[in-house]
Simulated assay, not measured.
Amino acid sequence: MKSEDGMRFKNQFKELKHRAKELASSSTEGFKPEVAMKNRDRNIVPYDANRVCLNGQGRDTYINASYIKGRDKIFIATQGPMRNTIIDFWRMIVEQESRIIVMLTKCEDNGGRQCERYWPARNCEFSYGDYRKTNVDEKVSDGCIKTELEVNFKGQEIAVTHYLFQRWPENGVPLTTSSFIRLYRKVIYQFSETGKQSIVVHCRPIS
């Protein structure tokens, strides 16, 4: 039963790639030379129609992130932050009033760097630009690390929950969907309680 469940999940994941190729939309902003260093993969950029725009002018507005179409634009999909995009990532969290981050990759996997660590370790804090993050609580359950963060931006205190799902493999999809579905339900429940604007989700680089 578990193998059938995993196979259906894998086939659905592949179907997403095929459907994406059928979409006809421009990606002018993401391919501009002045923002090239903000893209982890040069050929994977957001569509102009649904990209997230940061406050500012010129290249300061760009981040490799997209709204997922839906009734309320609940999700924002983005690349794993690089060292030079960590500040942009936290700008997006604050400006979009996101209070939940779901990370579907490890920072390192099989000896390769998948994502820069952009949040502090347990009982620690660090700063990037005007953003200071403090790890106030951390719990491990069902293959997921749930971290409660306090983010200070110019004196404004913001509570953000970070979920690190550890069971998504470097290649392919999880063998079973049960733990992922439980995570999804937890996230959606928390989202309904906070009443904020979006859930930010990111994964590993596409190989």
Rank of each mutant, 00 (worst) to 15 (best):
residue 189 Y to P: 00
residue 35 V to T: 04
residue 152 N to V: 14
residue 101 I to K: 01
residue 67 Y to G: 01
residue 95 E to M: 04
residue 24 A to E: 15
residue 146 K to H: 10
residue 119 W to C: 05
residue 19 R to H: 08
residue 173 V to Q: 05
residue 81 P to Y: 01
residue 98 S to V: 04
residue 204 R to M: 02
residue 50 N to G: 01
residue 48 D to A: 10
residue 11 N to M: 13
residue 182 R to H: 13
residue 61 T to G: 03
residue 70 G to Y: 01
residue 135 N to P: 15
residue 86 I to G: 05
residue 21 K to V: 12
residue 162 H to L: 15
residue 180 F to D: 06
residue 159 A to F: 14
residue 123 N to K: 13
residue 23 L to F: 06
residue 82 M to W: 01
residue 39 N to L: 02
residue 101 I to G: 06
residue 27 S to A: 05
residue 26 S to D: 14
residue 5 D to Y: 09
residue 79 Q to F: 01
residue 68 I to F: 00
residue 94 V to F: 13
residue 52 V to F: 01
residue 101 I to L: 02
residue 207 S to K: 04
residue 32 K to P: 14
residue 120 P to D: 12
residue 184 Y to M: 15
residue 91 R to C: 03
residue 121 A to N: 15
residue 121 A to G: 12
residue 114 Q to Y: 10
residue 7 M to I: 12
residue 202 H to A: 00
residue 176 T to P: 15
residue 200 V to H: 01
residue 145 I to M: 07
residue 173 V to P: 14
residue 202 H to E: 02
residue 133 K to V: 15
residue 59 R to L: 10
residue 192 S to N: 05
residue 82 M to V: 12
residue 43 N to I: 09
residue 7 M to K: 15
residue 105 T to P: 01
residue 193 E to Y: 09
residue 76 I to T: 02
residue 121 A to R: 13
residue 39 N to T: 03
residue 121 A to I: 15
residue 97 E to F: 11
residue 43 N to E: 11
residue 63 I to M: 00
residue 112 G to A: 05
residue 175 L to W: 08
residue 193 E to W: 03
residue 134 T to G: 02
residue 65 A to K: 00
residue 44 I to P: 05
residue 195 G to T: 07
residue 62 Y to S: 02
residue 179 S to Q: 13
residue 143 G to C: 11
residue 32 K to S: 07
residue 115 C to H: 01
residue 62 Y to T: 00
residue 75 F to Y: 07
residue 8 R to I: 11
residue 128 Y to R: 14
residue 207 S to M: 09
residue 127 S to R: 13
residue 143 G to L: 11
residue 90 W to H: 04
residue 179 S to R: 08
residue 61 T to L: 02
residue 180 F to E: 03
residue 173 V to D: 03
residue 196 K to W: 06
residue 96 Q to G: 02
residue 129 G to C: 11
residue 142 D to A: 09
residue 160 V to S: 07
residue 30 G to A: 08
residue 201 V to H: 01
residue 107 C to R: 06
residue 60 D to W: 06
residue 140 V to Q: 09
residue 36 A to V: 10
residue 46 P to Y: 00
residue 196 K to T: 04
residue 122 R to W: 12
residue 77 A to S: 05
residue 83 R to C: 06
residue 179 S to G: 04
residue 5 D to L: 10
residue 196 K to E: 08
residue 182 R to M: 13
residue 204 R to N: 01
residue 188 I to W: 05
residue 7 M to E: 14
residue 115 C to I: 12
residue 44 I to C: 07
residue 175 L to S: 09
residue 78 T to P: 03
residue 77 A to K: 00
residue 162 H to G: 10
residue 60 D to P: 00
residue 186 K to V: 13
residue 89 F to K: 01
residue 65 A to G: 00
residue 13 F to W: 11
residue 168 W to L: 06
residue 48 D to V: 10
residue 132 R to T: 15
residue 149 L to G: 13
residue 92 M to P: 15
residue 108 E to I: 14
residue 65 A to Q: 00
residue 65 A to M: 00
residue 95 E to V: 04
residue 48 D to T: 05
residue 41 D to W: 02
residue 66 S to M: 02
residue 167 R to S: 12
residue 94 V to Q: 07
residue 23 L to G: 06
